[in-house]
Computed example of a mutant assay.
Amino acid sequence: MKKIEIDDIIKQQFEYYQNMCSLLSDFKDSHFDPPGDIEKIEQWEKDNGTNLPHQYKSWLLLSAGSNILDGFIELSWPEIGTLDERNDIIIIASIIGDGETVYISRTDRKVYSIFEGEIKEYNDFDDFLTIKSLYIETLAKEYLGDDWGDIYDKQFGSE
């Protein structure tokens, strides 16, 4: 069985997302699918003639699909999509609250999102996760109060 090293930053992000979802579980439902299989990922890449960025592959190796906070973020198995009438994107997530689609460009392998025709570029998959975690922290403040960070640290230990 082939093994790939999971990106440490993505592993930390994954754990943070799981912890935040656990912290907010009385208010919002979340679900993380079991880890994906590297052979299945590589077969998908071969079948679609493209390579996925290492950080996104790392997330798939931690969870093949994730429904976070009542679908605020749905990270999914990759799917070929189109912009400009070409099969030029790989759809990886949706932000349900506002209809935003998150994708990887097949041309430059960068992470982008599109909402109402406006495209936003992220530095990488980690940057996308970091920016979306700000919304999760806003929810934590709304549901748990200003001391949500202390509650988090008490429950999960500070990093």
Results as ranks from 00 to 15, higher is better:
Met1Tyr: 08
Lys2Gly: 07
Lys3His: 10
Ile9Ser: 07
Ile10Gly: 03
Glu15Ala: 09
Leu23Tyr: 09
Leu23Asn: 04
Ser25Met: 09
Asp26Ile: 08
Asp26Lys: 11
His31Asp: 12
Phe32Ala: 08
Asp33Met: 10
Pro34Cys: 12
Pro34Glu: 12
Pro34Ala: 14
Glu39Cys: 01
Ile41His: 02
Lys46Phe: 08
Asp47Leu: 11
Gly49Tyr: 10
Leu52Arg: 00
His54Ile: 15
Tyr56Glu: 03
Lys57Glu: 01
Trp59His: 05
Leu61Met: 15
Leu62Gly: 03
Ser63Thr: 14
Ala64Ser: 15
Ala64Glu: 14
Ala64Asp: 06
Ile68Met: 09
Asp70Trp: 09
Gly71Asp: 10
Trp77Val: 00
Trp77Asp: 02
Trp77Asn: 02
Gly81Cys: 05
Gly81Ile: 03
Thr82Asp: 08
Thr82Ile: 10
Thr82Cys: 11
Leu83Lys: 10
Glu85Gln: 10
Asp88Met: 11
Ile89Gln: 00
Ala93Ser: 14
Ser94Asp: 11
Ser94Glu: 13
Gly97Cys: 07
Glu100His: 03
Val102Glu: 02
Val102Asp: 01
Ser105Val: 02
Thr107Asp: 09
Ile119Cys: 01
Lys120Glu: 06
Asn123Tyr: 09
Phe125Asp: 02
Asp126His: 15
Asp126Glu: 07
Asp127Trp: 07
Ile131Lys: 14
Ile131Met: 13
Lys132Trp: 12
Ile136Cys: 01
Leu144Gln: 07
Gly145Ser: 10
Tyr152Met: 06
Asp153Leu: 07
Asp153Lys: 15
Gln155Cys: 05
Phe156Asp: 01
